[in-house]
Structure formats: structure tokens, C-alpha cells
């Protein structure tokens, strides 16, 4: 994976085939959580293409969207949070007015990324006019991963980073499948954060006119 860098046409990152598969799979799963129709099954990002089903990463990903129909799923709530924690009437009125539009906004930009990642070749070009929407979609994916990783405070984020560092330094296989999944999802979460950071940097460097 190469981070986004600024180019005249837009921000460009590079993802190899496996990375595209994994990111596209996450994109499609967050779409499912938002109630979208499945994003197609065409290669190279057939939902499970390129992933060994016995692999810890594939196992971890298989659980991302398993509660897709549960409106109280914390991952869905992180995408569509309550607009008031104190006043039910305010929260319900807001949800009634905005939820359908928010779902459409979020699904549309996920679908665009999914289509971009379905193209051949390692380059992922994001025009500056679409960079903020893409960065927002990356936030949505990271919100879902953070929910599955049970990160609810800045300290939890720090703790995850030290867990990952320890796992990488030891070089040993995680003792349990649950630990292996946590390491995989954690690494994916961190990689997407790094990718998002580079996209925002490229946007601020070259796309300042789009603010």
C-alpha cells in the first residue's frame, strides 16, 4: 500500500490486489450495514475473491456486517448517531427528517469507491472534487471497525496501537482466533487511518481551492 500523494489530476494511492480486495470488502460491508443492496459481485472484488475462508482476516471480515438488520447495532449507531442524548423527542424528530438522506449520501460515496477499486491496476485516483467524500467514507469504515474493536475513547485507540506493536514485535502467532481477528481488524483500522491522513494531507496541499 502506498499512501495518497498529490498529483495534478487528484490524490493517488496504490493498493495491490489483496489490499483492494480487503478494502472493497469493507466498503461493501459498510454499505450492507447502511441497508444498501449488495455492491455487485463482479471480479476482482467478488465479496470473497482472493480471501482464503480459513484465513483469520476473512473470518474477521465475515462478522463485520452480521448484524446488518439490527438498528441498535453499535456499528450502525456510530454511522447514524442520536442527535440528542438528553431529549428523545429531538433525537426522534431528527432521525425522521434526516436518516433516509444520510443513508443515501453514505451509500452513494461507498459505491463510488467500490467502483473505483473494481478497476484494474494498482492506482487509486481520487479527484480533488471527490476527496472530501472519499475521506468521509473512510471515516465511516473506520467507525465500523472501531465499533467492532470496541474503541470508545482516545485511550482505547492508544491501547490498540500498543497491542499491535507488541503483536508485531513478538512475531508469534496470536494464541487464539479472537486475538488473531483483533490484530487483523486493528491493522486494517490503522492502515485505513494512515490512508485517510494521507488523503487529507494531499487535499490540503493541492486541493486548497476546494475548501
Amino acid at each position: 500500500m502506498r499512501a495518497f500523494v498529490a498529483s495534478p489530476e487528484g490524490a493517488v494511492a496504490q493498493l495491490d490486489e489483496e489490499e483492494r480486495t480487503v478494502v472493497a470488502r469493507m466498503v461493501a460491508d459498510v454499505g450492507l450495514l447502511l441497508g444498501a443492496e449488495p455492491f455487485g459481485m463482479a471480479p476482482p472484488v467478488d465479496r470473497d475473491a482472493g480471501l482464503d475462508p480459513e484465513d483469520a482476516l476473512a473470518q474477521a471480515l465475515s462478522r463485520i456486517a452480521e448484524n446488518a438488520t439490527d438498528p441498535e447495532d453499535p456499528a450502525v449507531l456510530s454511522l447514524l448517531p442520536h442527535a440528542s442524548t438528553e431529549d428523545r423527542e429531538v433525537a426522534q424528530e431528527f432521525r425522521r427528517l434526516t436518516e433516509a438522506d444520510l443513508r443515501i449520501t453514505k451509500v452513494d460515496r461507498l459505491r463510488r469507491i467500490w467502483e473505483d477499486l473494481s478497476d484494474d491496476g494498482p492506482d487509486w485516483l481520487v479527484p480533488y472534487s471527490e476527496a472530501l467524500a472519499t475521506a468521509s467514507a473512510l471515516t465511516d469504515i473506520r467507525l465500523v471497525l472501531a465499533s467492532r474493536l470496541q474503541l470508545s475513547s482516545d485511550d482505547d485507540g492508544e491501547l490498540l496501537r500498543s497491542e499491535l506493536a507488541t503483536a508485531l514485535e513478538s512475531g508469534e502467532e496470536p494464541a487464539t482466533r479472537a486475538e488473531a481477528e483483533r490484530v487483523w481488524l486493528g491493522m486494517l483500522y490503522e492502515s485505513l487511518g494512515w490512508l485517510q491522513q494521507s488523503l487529507v494531507d494531499a487535499l490540503m496541499e493541492e486541493g486548497g481551492d476546494h475548501v
Partner: peptide, 18 residues
């Protein structure tokens, strides 16, 4: 404020109105 909160949720930030 409902419009602003909706926009923030669109960007994936947690916002509330009061």
C-alpha cells in the same frame, strides 16, 4: 441546527443539537 448536525453526521462526526 438540524441541518448542521445532519452535515456533521454526513462527515462521520458525532454531533448533537440542544
Amino acid at each position: 441546527m438540524e441541518v448542521d448536525v445532519q452535515a456533521m453526521h454526513g462527515y462521520g462526526l458525532h454531533a448533537t443539537l440542544q
